[in-house]
Simulated assay, not measured.
Amino acid sequence: MDLPLWLLILALLPLGGLAYTAWLIVGAVLAHRTVRLSDPVAGELTVVAVSSPSSGPGRVSFVLDGVVRGAGFAPTAVKREGRIDRGRWPWPGTVLDVEVERGDPARFNINWPAAGVDGAEAARRLAEEMRRGEA
């Protein structure tokens, strides 16, 4: 459930003062960062490598390397950093839906709500791609 920013500020202010509240807000904004795309095209991001998840529940930091591909541009190696819910953690071989800037494929947004990552499903999809000679 996403709370309006003003409500979040109001709720957190008494907990640790203005500096603590500002720190939490900056983290929340960076975690939900999206890139403005002027000519978006649907694509896929295949995760090649990803950092280990940090300990603790909830949202955790990640750094991933992968390849984006889609109609109208060549497959492109990319890197992405951010924060996600632990339950959506991408593993190498995971294929994520993305929206990509056609003229600059390094600019993209991951469709995290659709990324209910399931290790068994990711392995099945990768095996299918390998059998077809796509991976």
Score class of each variant (00 low, 15 high):
Val98Cys: 13
Gly133Asn: 13
Leu64Asp: 09
Ala120Asp: 04
Ala74Gly: 07
Gly93Lys: 00
Trp91Thr: 02
Arg86Asn: 07
Val50Met: 03
Leu3Thr: 14
Val48Tyr: 05
Pro57Ala: 15
Arg33Ser: 10
Asn109Pro: 10
Gly116Val: 06
Gly27Leu: 14
Leu64Ile: 08
Phe73Trp: 10
Ala120Met: 01
Leu30Ile: 11
Asp2Glu: 10
Leu126Tyr: 06
Ala106Lys: 15
Asn111Ala: 04
Ala77Arg: 05
Arg80Phe: 08
Arg88Leu: 07
Leu126Trp: 05
Lys79His: 08
Val29Lys: 08
Gly72Cys: 02
Leu8Asn: 02
Pro57Gly: 15
Arg124Met: 02
Phe73Asp: 07
Ile9Ser: 10
Ala106Val: 14
Gly116Ala: 09
Pro40Ser: 01
Asp65Ser: 15
Arg86Trp: 05
Leu24Met: 13
Asp97Val: 06
Asp104Glu: 08
Leu45Met: 10
His32Ile: 13
Pro4Leu: 14
Asn111Asp: 03
Trp89Arg: 14
Val50Phe: 00
Thr46Pro: 01
Leu5Gly: 10
Ala22Ser: 12
Trp91Arg: 06
Thr94Val: 14
Trp6Leu: 01
Val60Met: 03
Asp97Ile: 04
Gly133Leu: 13
Val98Met: 13
Arg33Ile: 10
Gly82Glu: 00
Arg36Asn: 05
Ser38Thr: 04
Leu64Thr: 09
Leu3Ser: 14
Ile25Lys: 00
Ala71Gly: 03
Ala77Met: 00
Ala115Glu: 00
Gly93Phe: 01
Ala123Leu: 04
Ala77Cys: 04
Pro4Val: 13
Pro105Met: 04
Ala106Thr: 15
Leu15Ile: 03
Pro75Gln: 11
Arg125Met: 04
Val41Ile: 11
Leu37Cys: 11
Phe62Ser: 02
Ala11Leu: 03
Ala28Lys: 09
Thr94Cys: 14
Leu96Arg: 01
Ile84Lys: 05
Leu126Glu: 07
Trp91Val: 06
Val35Tyr: 05
Arg124Tyr: 01
Glu129Arg: 15
Leu13Ala: 09
Gly17Lys: 11
Ile9Leu: 12
Arg80Cys: 07
Leu24Glu: 12
Arg132Gln: 07
Ile110Met: 04
Val117Asn: 12
Pro113Val: 12
Ala135Lys: 06
Asp85Ser: 01
Glu128Tyr: 12
Leu3Phe: 14
Glu81Gly: 03
Ala31Gly: 15
Leu37Arg: 08
Ala42Thr: 09
Arg86Leu: 01
Asp39Arg: 11
Phe108Met: 15
Arg80Gln: 13
Asp104Asn: 08
Arg125Ala: 05
Ala42Asn: 11
Leu96Thr: 01
Gly82Asp: 05
Leu15Ser: 04
Ile84Tyr: 03
His32Ser: 15
Leu15Pro: 02
Arg59Lys: 00
Leu7Cys: 12
Arg83Trp: 05
Gly43Cys: 05
Phe73Gln: 07
Ala115Gly: 03
Leu37Met: 10
Glu134Lys: 07
Val48Pro: 02
Thr76Phe: 03
Arg102Ser: 07
Thr21Trp: 08
Leu37Ala: 10
Asp104His: 06
